[in-house]
Design a binder for these strands. Structure first.
Lengths: 190, 190
DNA sequence: CCTTAAAGACTAATATTATTAGCCTTGAAA
DNA sequence: TTTCAAGGCTAATAATATTAGTCTTTAAGG
């Protein structure tokens, strides 16, 4: 299939970019960096990717897929109680973000609209979570309740990663208690 | 004070950058753009600013100060009930973010650590809000409760601005209801 | 009034980086 | 054995941040 002693391929490039982003931050990623890491020159990358922007998109997509895998795993280990299921999902997200902070930031906070993730990919997951939250908020409130839950978890993680919670204290506990309070609030409203 | 027919100054440059960022997004801001808008050449900017990064920092600081002004105003119009005060603050933040989305994203989602806002500036405000939330969560839970509230409001706004809530529905209502549920949750725990 | 010094503009030059153009080599397939 | 395309490479281009050095103007002091 491939003539020549092939030195790289699209998957390897994406993975290399991901590792460099995780190591140095996305603002230090250059195609030159990636190429050097692979032992080739920057222009050669264009045989495999369309642009730097496309490369970042691919890293973002990869990040979402990993996150979704973490979701699935968490959900399958979390019993029947909807609150515990949602806690498990939220904690999986936070754990993932801590393990891959720069990728997480890239995926969720990309300014450039061109870099935003595929909406359908996200929607699919949202629907799964919404089905769980129905049991807490009731059917008619499930969309706003879902949105608030995603907001709370994501916002907490973002503020945390951006170093805006630096007064100490147990952040894991704060995360958990806040989400429990939130879910309890919707439950009491029902 | 200033010799020569002065064509600009630091404040004007910052304000111009802010406007261009708001209009075109931070990823399209170049010093050439800013200079052109002011009728001068890019290198001349360096008589007034230290670097592009410093310029962005200044825009971020300006953004925070505006946001804080909005907070103060909201708070002074919001009566004595702590829940209503916190709703007013959260809504002021969201309104501000909608009016200045690109500045808000820059200020809160800057990847580059060099661009992060002065922690002390943020702390001061956090303390004000914490004093209100004490009345809801109790003293001992007030730090986690504060963090969750900030996370919920900020996360909601971020997801909204990044176009991740596109299934329709009344987002203003969802924002309000989610925060009320959250506060109610902490209150019931007490 | 004259001199001067410094602020603030400019042009020219440099470094980095994304991207394109065009060439060259190799090995898979005819 | 020939060929042809994939996938390297070098060279060139464009955008942009930044630095160096020049020139002009006017405020201020004599």
């Amino acid at each position: 299939m491939s003539p020549y002693p092939v030195q790289t391929d699209r998957e390897t490039i994406i993975e290399t970019a991901r590792i460099l982003i995780e190591r140095d931050g996305v603002e230090h990623l250059s195609l030159g960096n990636v190429a050097a890491e692979l032992g080739i020159k920057a222009p050669s990358l264009y045989r495999h990717i369309e642009s730097k922007s496309a490369l970042l998109q691919a890293v973002i997509e990869h990040t979402y897929l990993s996150l979704f895998r973490a979701y699935d795993k968490a959900l399958s280990n979390s019993g029947e109680n909807p609150t515990e299921q949602l806690m498990a999902l939220s904690q999986a997200q936070r754990t993932f973000a801590h393990a891959n902070p720069n990728s997480y930031l890239l995926a969720y906070a990309a300014q450039d609209p061109e870099l935003r993730a595929d909406p359908n990919m996200l929607l699919e997951r949202a629907v799964i979570i919404q089905k769980i939250i129905i049991q807490i908020s009731g059917e008619e409130n499930s969309l706003p309740a879902l949105r608030g839950l995603l907001a709370l978890a994501h916002g907490f993680i973002m503020l945390e990663l951006n170093g805006q919670f630096r007064r100490g204290g147990d952040l894991s506990a704060a995360f958990e208690e806040s989400i429990r309070a939130y879910l309890l609030g919707w439950e009491s409203k029902k």
